[in-house]
Structure formats: C-alpha cells, structure tokens
C-alpha cells in the first residue's frame, strides 16, 4: 500500500502512544476496582488521572509522530465584509418590503409600543420575589421590655457578665436572628464614657451593642478588652466600645447601635427600649423617614 507511506515521517515509533493507551485501559480497571473496594478518593483520583492523561498524552504523541506537517499550511482568509453590490441588493430588497408598510407607520409604532409595554409588564410579577424593603429594613428587632436571652434561649442575669467578658444574646423568641444578635460587654467603668443621653443604658457595668457590623453585616465578635476595641473579622473594622462604639479603623463608617438595658424583678436583663439605630449595613435611604 504505497499510497499511505507519504503520511508517515521516518523515525517515528508507535510504542509510546500504544503504551499510553494501554495504560489508560488498565487505569479504568483500577478505577472500577477501587470504586467497588474502598472507594478511596485519592486512589480514584489517581486512576482517573492516569486514564485521562494516558488518552491525552497518547493522542498528543501520536499527533506529533505521524501527523505534524513538515510545512505549515496556508489558507486564504477570504473577505469578511459584503461587497457594495451585495449591500445595495440587500437594501433594494428590504426597501421593497418596507414600501408596503410605509403608509401604515402609525400601526408600526403602535406595534413596537405594544410589544415594549408587554415586555415591561411581564417584569412586574418579579416583584413577588420579595417584600417592599421600605418596611422590613427599618425594623429594629428589640422592643422595650424584651427579655435578653443567650444562644440557648436562657435569660441572662446582669451579674453573670464579668468585666472584660462578652456574651452574644438575642431578644426572647428570636435566637439566631441575623439582625437581632447583640453583644453584652462587661466594660471597664473607669474607661467607659457613655454617650450623652445614654448614661443610664448600662446595668452593673454591662453595655449592649448590636453585633451586626455596620460595614457589611458580619458578626463583630473579637473583643480586645485592654483597649476596649471590638474588631470585625471580615474587613477589620474596629469599634471603640468606650466611646459609643465609634469606628476608628477599617471601612465601617458608622458606630454600632447601642441597646439600652435594665433588669426585671428577677435580676435578669431586659431591653429598656429599641436599638439607637437600625442595625446592619447601610443603604441609600436609611436615614429617611
């Protein structure tokens, strides 16, 4: 068969690709065996690797040994754009059709308008996806008299928070709620300076601040008691608890809202009002009523 000789170039061997393909078949057997055996992820991965690479490398070496042309091929690129005549012919045909519509241009405009209006109207049902944010965004989860409970739902005695200690709490019935989470902090009375009007918001050296970062909502849970700094782990915003939780470093621009505290008859903490501002990240009309 002399006619298939010109395709081959001297010096090429079939051994390498043949071994690669054979290895791929063996690897499939290995893969199946491991699947029915231990199903070990690493063994499965290695057999899959040998199998796929065997095919890939085999094809590549085969292509290299037998198939690469000595000389590069050259192909004409042809022209991309239509000729002037083709464009003119297109216009002629289009105009011929358009001519019949022209006198009904009002109809044409109405048709476009009707289709556009239908398209816009079809978007309206997507409003069912969520509530109007106006109301829900401004709710503050705490109300006066709400009992303070910990993550297990147990009431918290004011005396159970030591100086420098912290505890994550929620309003009773809302344990685990994203925006209700609040941090009780045993502040150092000599360093803590309450904001004006908030002198009575702490109980026995326990202050309460929203745990939701005002930057992007992460729980701010790292307390450096010595400096009275509360750190957000997400983008390192730092809030000065001793100074009304004002942000002193990082991207947060507004302080953490504070919760006024008092105690009920059993000595357990309750909210004495709602948070000083809605908790969580900002949005454009957050300060509008």
């Amino acid at each position: 068969m002399p006619d298939e000789q010109p395709q081959r170039r001297p010096g090429g061997g079939e051994t390498f690709p043949a071994v690669a393909f054979a290895l791929a078949i063996v690897a499939v057997i290995g893969f199946v065996a491991v699947y029915f055996g231990s199903a070990d992820t690493q063994a499965l991965g290695i057999f899959a690797f040998v199998c796929l690479m065997g095919i890939g490398v085999g094809m590549a070496t085969w292509a290299k040994r037998f198939l690469s042309p000595a000389e590069p091929e050259v192909e004409d690129r042809g022209r991309l754009a239509s000729t002037e005549e083709e464009i003119a012919a297109f216009h002629a045909d289009f105009d011929a059709g358009e001519y019949q519509l022209e006198r009904r241009s009002l109809l044409g405009k109405l048709l476009v308008g009707a289709v556009a209006a239908t398209g816009l109207g079809a978007l309206v049902p997507f409003l069912s996806l969520g509530p109007n944010p106006k109301s829900s965004f401004k709710e503050t989860p705490w109300s006066p008299g709400a009992r303070v409970v910990d993550e297990q739902g147990n009431p918290v005695a004011a005396t159970s928070i030591n100086t420098d200690g912290i505890l994550t709490v929620f309003p009773e019935g809302q344990v685990g709620d994203e925006f209700a989470q609040t941090l009780l902090i045993g502040v150092r009375s000599e360093a803590f300076v309450p904001a004006s009007g908030r002198e009575s918001w702490t109980v026995d050296g326990v202050a309460a601040f929203s745990k939701v970062c005002t930057h992007a909502g992460c729980p701010v849970g790292l307390y450096q008691a010595a400096q009275g700094l509360l750190l957000c782990p997400c983008h390192q915003s730092t809030f000065d608890i001793n100074n009304a939780a004002e942000p002193i470093f990082g991207p947060a621009a507004v302080p953490l809202p504070q919760l006024p505290l008092s105690v009920d008859a059993d000595g357990n903490l309750v909210a004495d009002g709602s948070l000083s501002a809605p908790p969580g990240p900002g949005f454009w009309n957050q300060n509008r009523q």
Binding site: F49, C51, L52, M53, I55, G56, V57, M59, A60
Partner: peptide
C-alpha cells in the same frame, strides 16, 4: 482532543 483529556486528567 489531547488537550481536552490532559486538562480533564
């Protein structure tokens, strides 16, 4: 084809 199998592998 070879590249596909190598990427997959």
């Amino acid at each position: 084809g070879a590249l596909f199998f190598c990427v997959f592998g």
